[in-house]
Amino acid sequence: MLRHLPKINDPNLLVGPETSDDAAVYRVSDDTAVIQTLDFFPPMVDDPYIFGQIAAANALSDVYAMGGRPLLALNIVCFPNCLDVKVLKEILRGGADKVNEAGAVIAGGHSVEDNEPKYGLAVCGIVQPDKMLSNSGAVPGDMLVLTKPLGTGIINTAIKGDIASEETAALAVKYMSMLNNKAAEAMLKVGVNACTDITGFGFLGHAAEMARASNVTLEIWSKECPVIPGVKDLAMMGMIPAGAYNNRYHLGDNVVFDLSVPREIQDVLFDPQTSGGLLISVSKNKAHHLMEILKQEQVPAALVGCVTSKNNTLISVR
């Protein structure tokens, strides 16, 4: 969609819409660039406080994915006048608590009346221009690290159908509301080549964007990809959101599966994630160090593949 906007020629715009990256980055001085991002969506859970936390974690994630630190956030609210205003208070409290946990501040916001509630944040962060990460720096030989398990879209579909177990639903909430700050700190400490966060286009969709922007092919090891317990069973029961099928359709020939990858795993890899983890491309000699720090910080990360020179596909899954 953004391809239709006029091309911008400003040398200080370090990241614009061209590379399908996570946020815009603008250099304000030699050692500081501003990261600006915005994200909001309708509730996927009933509890308004939890929804607020998830929406905030999701919006903050784009700053982390660029290697930045969030400073300031503004609320974006759509809310129906027929709903109890207490619900809105709980949503905002959830958002504020999450922003606080991230070490940033909420400095206001804007609301409009709408039929369905929606909530999110515009977040402003900073990064040193030479430390900035994008999805375009992956190089052949790199290892790929994913920092949260997959399957929240499938679980949310099953929750709608009242078919998810309490444990599975609780795990989805835990991962959706988890900040990517620890993962971001770890990768800044180690120094990595590329990063993106996993959201609506699913693991493979965002991985394909990284492959395209970096002009490489990503090899994904499906057996190593972390999946929230219970998700495979729900996938086999047909609890797959329409977005997963759209993601599969849009990627088409850009993803090639080995015949041994079961259908339900393919679905999980295409599953749209709410506030998913970071996908990090790190050189082989630093991968072990990165994984060690992530483990110490209790980030549920896994080594899920490697980067190869570009062949006839963006992603090859085996």
Binding site: A235, M236, M237, G238, M239, I240, P241, A242, A244, Y245, N246, R263
Partner: peptide, 9 residues
């Protein structure tokens, strides 16, 4: 999507 899901189930 519904076709796939019902069939799968």
């Amino acid at each position: 999507a519904a076709k796939e899901n019902v069939t799968r189930f």
